[in-house]
């Protein structure tokens, strides 16, 4: 069970109050894109053992979306940041590096 803190309303609650919304920072490729780009957008997902970046929504609370960096092995939450962010912010990356030196996630490190 994850204990999460919503960055939008500051509530600390357990996992069932939230809902995971898939991988974060996906780049959308729609009509007119190449088959390869569309395939990557549609199907290619990370399955890391370690740091992972996901979209979450505080379903039973304030209803806002946010992005969370967490560890799939230790269940540690490295941090949360606004959903309107295009790539993991530097302070989150540093926190991950402190715990998992040499980590990679997609082309982020």
């Amino acid at each position: 069970m994850l204990i999460l803190t919503c960055p939008c309303c500051g509530t600390t609650g357990e996992e069932t109050e939230f809902h995971q919304g898939g991988e974060a920072h996906l780049v959308r490729h729609g009509p007119g894109s190449t088959d390869d780009d569309f395939h990557t957008y549609m199907f290619a997902r990370e399955n890391p053992k370690g740091a992972h970046f996901e979209r979450w929504r505080h379903n039973y609370g304030c209803g806002k979306w946010f992005i969370m960096a967490r560890d799939t092995v230790t269940l540690e939450v490295y941090g949360t940041y606004p959903a309107q962010t295009h790539e993991p912010p530097q302070h989150i990356r540093e926190r991950v590096t402190a715990k998992r030196p040499g980590w990679t996630w997609r082309d982020v490190a």
Partner: peptide, 10 residues
Amino acid sequence: VRRTRLAQIP
């Protein structure tokens, strides 16, 4: 104020 889950309902 707390918005939360009451068993199966918001």
